[in-house]
Design a protein around this nucleic acid. Sequence first.
RNA 1: GCCAGAGUAGCUCAGCGGUAGAGCAGGGGACUCAUAAGCCCUUGGUCGGGGGUUCGAUUCCCUCCUCUGGCACCA
Length: 513
Amino acid sequence: MKPFFITTAIDYTNGAPHIGHAYEKVLTDVIARYQRLAGRDVFFLTGVDQHGQKVQQSAEKAGIAPQEYVDQITAKFRALWQKLGVDYDGWAATTEASHKACVQTILQRLHDEGQLYKAKQSGYYSVRQEQFLTEKERGPDGNFGPEWGEVILVEEENWWFKLAEHKQWLLDLLDRRPELVVPSFRLAELRNAVAKLEGDLCISRPKSRLTWGIELPFDRDFVTYVWFDALVNYISFAPGYDAAAGADLTEFKRWWPAVHVIGKDILVPAHGVYWPIMLKAIGFSDDEIPQLLVHGWWNISGEKMSKSLGNVIDPDVLADKYGAAAVRYYLVADITTGKDADFSEERLIQRYNVDLANSIGNLLNRTLNMAAKYRNGVLKQSLEGGLKERAEFFVQAYAPAMEEFQINAALEKALGLAVEANQFVEQTKPWALAKAGDDAALDAALYHLAETLRILAILLSPVLPQAARGIWDQLGVSGEFRLADATWGGLPDGHQLGKPVPLFPRIETPASE
RNA sequence: GCCAGAGUAGCUCAGCGGUAGAGCAGGGGACUCAUAAGCCCUUGGUCGGGGGUUCGAUUCCCUCCUCUGGCACCA
């Protein structure tokens, strides 16, 4: 089976992580864990984008070296991912030497292939946006608006990448391989943007203005444009990649192409236009163009989250307050992949309490209590009837949803199984069976509940790895489970269950007391 | 302005040609193994407005309104 290479966007180390950063990483982590569960080799790459003028300026303001500045911010990101259980295999940091070498190799390659040219340009330059402004960017009063920040008059020579040359190729590719952009309505958006594409891309910045970047190998007076630098991380930190001349790239080719998980804000033009054209220009085939999974945003009370509105949600605080499981679950359960959603702490609590504590946690607890009370926790295997077919049904419905990145839909299947198991308890009434001395029916009911829980934990494990482990521990089983183990009869005859401990303690709030 | 997305129960959303669905919230009930959890029943919507196609539209088409995103314009 082809291995699975998945990446996130690399975060710009110019400020602390917010809920949007956390969402993207958790989403990717869940997909990576699912693919692993399904039996594939997985490489999950994430990291940080550390170059650029804004970083250089922030560091100057803080009175420290750029590297020191980015190291501090980077540490915050890594600590958060650890807290949230984001378990990546590769860490991309654009200031690393190997990355620089890769960027330079690719630049040199483009240069050799005649894809780059040098041209003079003069005009107004926005420091904040790191781009030249044209007359059309002027406001009605003839001045450049505040959204551009400081604007300076610049005349300089720069290096350009022949982007427009590949426009038709990209349009054809998108028509031929619509699956390259998920969800599909984003493909339409990208297509429109490509159709309007004109002009080439300036990929250099003179050192006189910006030193914090990667040098052009064929012209030492320049550093490369941040996007050109950042996008290359997907190759430079890919498994099996080696920038050295004549290196064996068999392993790299085995993993490539990646699935890039990105936010809707960086589809056009960076990931949807620049990146595929860059890959094409350096010799990647059409089949080696990566798929883009474009996710939406968490809004706050219907408004965009932003520092100026003061409504930024700190995932670190959230995780301390409610635990990583609650945050992870909420972030992938309460949003449809690709769409926007409204963030609400109340809803986070509600979904944790209702789905995890009341439905799943309580199911585990009542099952183990009854088994302990009536049967000393010993099971008798039952391979027919009861919940068997329902469990198999939900497992079958779960996998396709996960394959299509519809985590929320997949979780609904897992939860549906828990709901039916709770109904099963009410129908079979084990306490009544115990009182009536109907041992055969009692044993069967208890086995079906325990076995359903074992399978349920497998379905939950990509989203809630710790909790899944907790369920197995309490059931008294050890070892790693794959999706292939989510078949009926895994718990052996005579199995001894463990002791019940509340798995998801309810979050009590002032309103609920 | 162009392109796209969204407008469905109090809330969050699913459905997308055949007399409206889920979860949560609200109301009622029976039970007791359990994290006062779970289970059963239930209140609640002229599916943004208006046209059209159709035997029949929330579902397709047109148009308008509102919100969101991208792109553009701003003489």
